[in-house]
């Protein structure tokens, strides 16, 4: 676990060359900014898919991507093995969309075949038969997390089923989330999180960024930062989702 030592917080962005399609860099920027605002030194490590994943990171972020890059990312992550070792070491992982699917047991790749994931989350993804899920989402976060409502933007075809050891990250009020029809959105266990929300999701839900920091630092609270614009954006998007134009 990271402490406020000289090396600072090690923030690892996994495969931006393959998995950074919908502004996913935003999640990295938000975590980095909010850590620095708390006076933490941040060592950000962007890992391209031809480089090894460092195993000593504190927080790993994985974004969304198109179908072929998703398959390539899964192949390279499986071969590399570093992310699994990092999780074994207690690292925090936050993943979005294609990245979320890769963390599960398997998903359907661009060739229509079942592609094994990393098995870090107890979820299994398939391709939805219906229309693509696109639009604003409003959901209640899992009560164990004690966080305010989740607001996000979804754009995916995938459907993700949760196994017994994964908890839903949230329950949707508006939107599709996991696409299973049971109202769940995303999944988490103690240290690994997955969501279909873009937006990017941490810009609309800075409390989740803070949760990742708290878990990584093993603290219960962080000094407050100025959340004025985040709160204004949240209020606007929640209102927009509730009263569509």
């Amino acid at each position: 676990m990271a402490s406020m030592n000289e090396s600072g917080l090690r923030l690892v962005w996994v495969y931006p060359d393959l998995l950074s399609t919908y502004g996913d860099q935003g999640n990295v920027l938000v975590v980095e900014r909010r850590a620095r605002q708390r006076g933490l030194a941040v060592h950000r490590i962007d890992v391209r898919s031809d480089q090894p994943i460092p195993t000593s990171g504190d927080i790993y972020l994985i974004g969304g991507g198109e179908d072929r890059p998703q398959r390539l990312a899964a192949e390279r992550l499986r071969r590399d093995g570093g992310l699994t070792r990092a999780v074994d070491n207690g690292a925090i992982v936050f993943s979005v969309c294609a990245g979320y699917q890769i963390l599960g047991h398997e998903f359907v790749n661009d060739l229509g075949q079942r592609e094994p994931g990393l098995g870090l989350l107890d979820v299994t993804s398939t391709r939805g038969e219906g229309e693509r899920c696109v639009g604003d989402v409003l959901a209640d976060m899992d009560e164990r997390l004690g966080l305010p409502q989740l607001t996000g933007f979804e754009n995916h075809q995938g459907v993700t089923h949760l196994g017994p050891t994964a908890r839903p990250l949230a329950r949707v009020r508006l939107g599709r989330g996991n696409g299973t029809g049971d109202g769940t959105e995303g999944a988490w266990n103690d240290t690994v999180f997955g969501t279909y929300m873009h937006g990017p999701v941490l810009a609309r839900n800075p409390q989740i960024a803070d949760l990742l920091l708290k878990l990584a630092l093993d603290v219960n609270a962080l000094p407050p930062v100025d959340d004025r614009w985040y709160e204004a954006l949240r209020a606007e998007r929640i209102a927009a989702a509730t009263q569509p134009a």
Partner: peptide, 9 residues
Amino acid sequence: GTDTSWLWD
């Protein structure tokens, strides 16, 4: 386009 996530790129 109704998605603004591109602002982060």
